[in-house]
Simulated scan of single mutants.
Amino acid sequence: MGAAGDEGAAARRKEVRWATLGEICQINRGRVISKDYLRDNAGPYPVYSSQTANDGVFGFIDTYDYDFESITWTTDGANAGSVFYHQDEKFSITNVCGLLRVLDDNQVITKFLYYMLGQLTKRHVSEGMGNPKLMSNAMSRIRVPVPPLAEQARIVAILDKFDALVNDLSSGLPAEIAARRQQYAYYRDRLLSFAELRMES
């Protein structure tokens, strides 16, 4: 980014307001879903749990609890603080997951919030008693930047393109994949630098 780009970014940061997740999201916790329940109620709808493998899918059942754009996160265990984005999907979550639903999509774009939380949540994980946790009460207190909607959309469009590029390269040469991921991380950090400014203040 050149000087003009830096000036534009600085101007956009001045328009940013700050809010807690509890102020801008409905926060839910999942329910207990056992492996026996999965076996006895097999179906087409995914159940997300604390694992990060297989995009967090624990299994599939014949009913669903949620049917809207949302973000889920892992509340307990080694993967606590991992976030996942859901769109146009019917699904459920287990009791070691939480769910965020944006209250006003004229103020916050869910995909922007997902990218932002990918940078923030791990910093808020508690390591007490050797069991990492990020429970709903702690999640609700996390402060996030809320830039103008047009700026959120611009950031999402750029990061979506980089994300698609990195995924398309998954079968390419290791050096090329590493270079693209490094480039993606650089621009992601620059675009989401609101958080760094907030923590310095």
Score class of each variant (00 low, 15 high):
Arg39Ile: 06
Ala9Glu: 14
Gln152Val: 02
Val166Trp: 06
Thr74Ala: 08
Ala164Phe: 01
Asn41Cys: 08
Thr63Gln: 03
Asn54His: 07
Gln183Pro: 07
Trp18Val: 01
Gly5Glu: 08
Ala185Ser: 14
Gly128Asn: 13
Pro145His: 06
Lys90Gly: 08
Ala164Gln: 13
Cys97His: 04
Ala178Cys: 06
Asn167Phe: 09
Gln152His: 05
Leu113Pro: 04
Leu117Glu: 10
Val57Lys: 04
Thr110Val: 05
Glu176Leu: 10
Val108Tyr: 05
Leu149Glu: 00
Ile27Leu: 12
Tyr85Ile: 07
Tyr184Ile: 13
Arg13Gly: 08
Ser92Asn: 02
Gly30Cys: 05
Arg29Trp: 06
Tyr37Arg: 10
Leu149Arg: 07
Arg29Ser: 15
Glu69Cys: 12
Gly59Ile: 02
Gln51Asn: 15
Leu117Asp: 10
Leu113Thr: 02
Asp6Val: 08
Phe84Val: 08
Asn137Ser: 15
Phe68Trp: 11
Leu173Gln: 14
Ala53His: 11
Met129Tyr: 12
Asp104Gln: 04
Leu113Lys: 01
Leu120Glu: 14
Pro148Asn: 03
Gln107Thr: 13
Tyr85Val: 07
Ala138Met: 12
Trp18Leu: 02
Ser82His: 11
Leu99Glu: 09
Ala157Gln: 11
Thr72His: 05
Arg123Val: 07
Ser193Lys: 00
Tyr187Arg: 03
His86Gly: 08
Phe60Trp: 04
Ile93Arg: 07
Ile33Val: 09
